[in-house]
């Protein structure tokens, strides 16, 4: 047990943090795309699209992220597809969170009042125009708070990628734990770093939410 000041540990940990941020950013990008596609698929009028979206969402929500990661990393090579750890990590993080995000997108679209759809029909908008110009712009703001939670889960799941040897924050912490035996200091710093990123993410998302809802009343009826 040692209580030496942990400043010397910061540089390597910050390098790991950089990797963690890359993983998170890549995962979020993929997550948003998949959430949008699958969420729209779930409310689509075309049955095969709906089935496809449902199968994707159920599979990735029904199994754990770590199992998915192992499957992508250890099983895919059997099929001749070897992914670099970093790529496998981003793929799994995005696919896993995208399934949760799809539910957020679906919920937000369905939460837009029915009257909006009727007004659009009465004005002659096509179903596609109604979705993209009337429903989605209103749904986006109500998507942000639950999406923020999905992103934070993604950030937390990114730690799992260390077990397939991506040199992220968790991986670096494990290495230095074994080297320096300053376990308490290392894991405390790591916890604080993850927490800081999570707080940053959630603050950023609420800022975005405030910006987007400025001047507009998206609740429907004015109080």
């Amino acid at each position: 047990m040692s209580f030496a000041p942990p400043f010397d540990l910061l540089p390597p940990l910050l390098v790991g943090l950089g990797k963690t941020l890359q993983l998170t950013a890549g995962g979020i990008l993929l997550c948003v795309l998949l959430a949008l596609f699958a969420g729209l698929g779930k409310v689509s009028g075309i049955p095969p699209l709906r089935w496809l979206a449902n199968i994707y969402v159920e599979i990735f929500r029904g199994t754990s992220a770590l199992v998915q990661l192992f499957w992508f990393f250890f099983v895919l090579p059997f099929f001749g597809v070897s992914l670099e750890p970093m790529l496998a990590g981003i793929l799994v993080l995005g696919l896993n969170s995208g399934a949760y995000g799809a539910e957020v997108v679906r919920g937000a679209i369905q939460a837009v009042s029915h009257g909006q759809k009727e007004a659009a029909t009465a004005l002659g908008f096509t179903p596609r125009q109604t979705l993209w110009r009337i429903l989605l712009p209103q749904a986006v703001v109500s998507m942000l708070p639950p999406m923020s939670n999905v992103f934070i889960e993604l950030l937390k799941n990114s730690a799992l990628v260390s077990v397939i040897s991506v040199h992220d924050l968790t991986f670096v912490a494990q290495i230095h734990r074994a080297d320096s035996l300053r376990t308490t200091a290392i894991f405390s710093i790591v916890l604080v770093l993850y927490f800081a990123v999570a707080q940053g993410l959630s603050r950023g998302m609420s800022f975005l939410e405030k910006r987007l809802s400025r001047g507009r009343d998206l609740g429907g009826v004015k109080a």
């Binding site: 934070i152 950030l155 937390k156 799941n157 990114s158 730690a159 799992l160 260390s162 968790t170 912490a173 494990q174 734990r177 894991f187 790591v190 916890l191 993850y194 927490f195 999570a198 707080q199 959630s202």
Partner: peptide
């Protein structure tokens, strides 16, 4: 906030 904002894996290692 802190427990929810940090990975389960790190808590496990801790």
């Amino acid at each position: 906030e802190f427990i929810r904002g940090t990975p389960l894996l790190i808590q496990l290692y801790f």
